[in-house]
Design a protein around this nucleic acid. Structure first.
Length: 591
RNA sequence: GCGGUCGUAGUCUAGUUUGGUAGGACAUCAGCUUCCCAAGCUGACGACCCGGGUUCAAAUCCCGGUGACCGCACCA
């Protein structure tokens, strides 16, 4: 093998090697190449598409199948109101100023924080004109060259469009899949038979008009996100599944450590993280433990993972507590693969307020509460003749005033003023009333694990990548291997090829992802298969013709076993379900 | 968006200084070879990022665009 071609040289890092391999073998490549390409867009080829599907299938297996999270699928474009309500239109853009002299560009709000001593929270709330005024008032100049700033601009990192042929209706490409779930909450909650807690996941494309996408699959303008919104009653925050993960160790880089400019992680079990109040929500820590498990199943060892607590100013506008899950990669060090945010009732509240639709849920008390309260009831028979057509308005105004205030005034003065209306004692009925309160309404809280599918894909590739005898071997975990079985006739003649086709059909009908390859020497085919991550190779040789047995080759160890064709389906099913290991597939052939 | 480096078959690259038929290797495909780890032999396919300019002639020089990589900024 030629080292240069395969990028196996130590100075050629894994990112380069993987991108080259990916293009050549069809895992992925930059989109629109015939028109010169466009940054931040990627096309998954046949191998990559399958691998990505398998990774997303893992998410479904872990969350949808095993813990009963619901799945939904909605549109990428949403009416402007959705993202106005969610706060994205305000927060998903950066105020920028450009120096007229050196053309340097700066975040205007960051300048205010540094030069005008305005807190980041304040700066974030300010309007464009306010920021401009503050910059002028403090006489802030370019920190690089001292030049004057030009016009203040905002760069919106959402893709904006219009819906329909007339330009009135603004729409945005969703920058996260989460909002669809919040917007559809009422229907989802009904479908979930109105019981908390419950979770909904949406796996789909999201769009962010990144200023400068780099790093291949790591930062795309169009990418696949898996947002899981888990709704629960803040009064009953306990996670009933916690026992399954409570001794799981999470290496966390804590805020307090980060502020000391130290990168050491603290190993905490799930239980400790909760007991020490480092993670506030049981569900959040549960999902963090699940995320760790997911990455392990994708081939990333535990010691190459960590969680990082986000500092106040790093958190998204909707989050009260955030952790990122990071994986160590060759080129960039630690990169984020999932984010875990405690979104509280932020999103549902925003949409309730903006839409006017009630999204609170009703909870019946275990024991109804008997409540005695003071009630002010307007006597319309008395108010009507006095105020005529204004009577109902007066009653409405009265209803807004705290009951105790009315009662006190009546007792002291014998009347009560609402705006300009004088309400007399005989016009209202003030009494203590007993009511039975059977339940209450509240807005559910949300914890959100959010996975970047493309990043999961990339780290899976990077951790599968290995060199054996100077050849590239993609050692994917067997559950995500893009091709499960390769079928090879030793020679493409003497009936070996037709026999191999039969075996291929047999396995394909059994539901396996099979590939047939009859060209080139057998060694060349094995090498090709290793590079594509084909889990097992089945070779039909001259012995097959006499006794109906084949060799099965393991991609990672290159060991071979001999197995009867009739046993293949059963044995391979067991193998891919993880119930037997390779050596148990047949009798070992000594090399 | 700024600065630097760069863009030649599927991949890696020679050629650019000094303008003159674009060369190799590997991969791929077809054939031969009883062929279990990229063997060999024969043959085939296949490229100068895009646009404009200078010139008799541009992969090469000039201008603009675009893409990649690195650094800055950005990453809610």
């Amino acid at each position: 093998m030629n080292d240069e071609v395969k990028c196996a040289k130590p100075e050629c890092d894994r990112f380069t090697a993987i991108n080259e391999l990916a293009r050549r073998r069809g895992f992925f490549w930059p989109s629109f190449e015939i028109y010169g390409g466009s940054g931040g867009f990627v096309t998954y080829g046949p191998l990559g598409t399958r691998l990505k599907q398998n990774i997303e299938a893992k998410l479904r297996e872990l969350f949808v199948k095993k813990i009963g999270i619901y799945e939904m699928e909605s549109s990428v474009i949403a009416p402007g109101k959705v993202f106005e309500a969610s706060g994205h239109v305000d927060h998903f853009k950066e105020p920028m100023v450009e120096c007229q002299n050196c053309r340097g560009r700066f975040r205007a709000d960051h300048l205010l924080e540094e030069k005008a001593d305005i807190s980041s929270a304040e700066a974030e709330k300010m309007s464009l004109t306010e920021i401009k005024e503050e910059i002028e008032r403090h006489g802030i100049l370019c920190p690089d060259c001292g030049g004057k700033f030009g016009e203040l601009q905002r760069f919106l990192t959402m893709f904006e469009t219009t819906i329909g042929p007339y330009s009135g209706a603004v729409g945005y490409g969703r920058p996260e899949a989460a909002q669809n779930i919040f917007v559809e909450f009422n229907r989802l909650y009904t479908v979930a038979r109105e019981r908390l807690p419950f979770g909904v996941i949406q796996i789909g494309h999201a769009l962010r008009n990144e200023i400068s996408p780099r790093q291949g699959l790591i930062r795309l303008r169009e990418f696949t996100i898996a947002d899981l919104e888990f709704f629960f009653d803040p009064q009953e925050p306990c996670c009933h599944l916690l026992k399954e993960v409570e001794n799981e160790v999470l290496p966390i880089l804590l805020c307090e450590t980060r502020l000391k400019e130290c990168e050491d992680t603290t190993d905490l079990t799930v239980r400790e993280a909760l007991d020490r109040k480092i993670i506030r929500s049981e569900w959040q820590v549960f999902f963090m433990a699940m995320a760790k498990k997911l990455l392990i199943e994708l081939g990333v060892p535990a010691e190459k993972q960590r969680f990082i607590e986000k500092l106040t100013w790093e958190k998204a506008h909707y989050s009260s507590q955030s952790f990122d899950q990071e994986v160590l990669v060759d080129r960039w060090g630690w990169i984020e693969v999932s984010g875990h945010a405690y979104r509280t009732d932020y999103d549902l509240s925003c949409h309730m307020k903006a839409s006017g639709v009630d999204m609170s849920v009703y909870k019946e008390y275990a024991n109804p509460v008997e409540k005695e309260e003071l009630v002010v009831k307007p006597i319309m028979a008395k108010l009507g003749p006095v105020y005529k057509n204004e009577a109902s308005k007066v009653a409405a105004l009265l209803a807004k005033v705290p009951v105790q205030e009315v009662a006190d005034a009546m007792q002291k003065q014998g009347y009560f003023m609402v705006e300009n209306y004088e309400i007399k004692t005989d016009q209202v009925d003030i009494s203590r009333q007993k009511t039975i309160v059977r339940g209450t309404r509240f807005i559910p809280h949300v914890v959100e694990p959010s996975f970047g599918s493309d990043r999961l894909f990339y780290v899976a590739l990077e951790y599968a990548y290995g060199i054996k005898d100077n050849r590239v071997v993609m050692s994917f975990p067997r559950s995500i291997a893009p091709v499960q079985v390769g079928v090879y006739p030793l020679m493409s003649k003497d009936g070996l090829d037709t026999k191999a086709s039969e075996v291929q059909r047999l396995l394909a009908n059994e539901g396996f992802m099979v590939e047939f390859d009859e060209t080139g020497s057998i060694g060349r085919r094995y090498a090709r298969a290793d590079e594509a991550g084909v889990q097992l190779g089945i070779t039909i040789d001259y012995e097959t013709l006499s006794d109906d047995t084949v060799t099965i080759r393991d991609r990672d160890s290159w060991q071979q076993v001999r197995c009867a064709i009739k046993d293949l389906p059963k044995q391979l099913h067991k193998y891919f379900e993880g119930k037997v290991n390779f050596e148990q597939l047949g009798s070992i052939i000594k090399s």
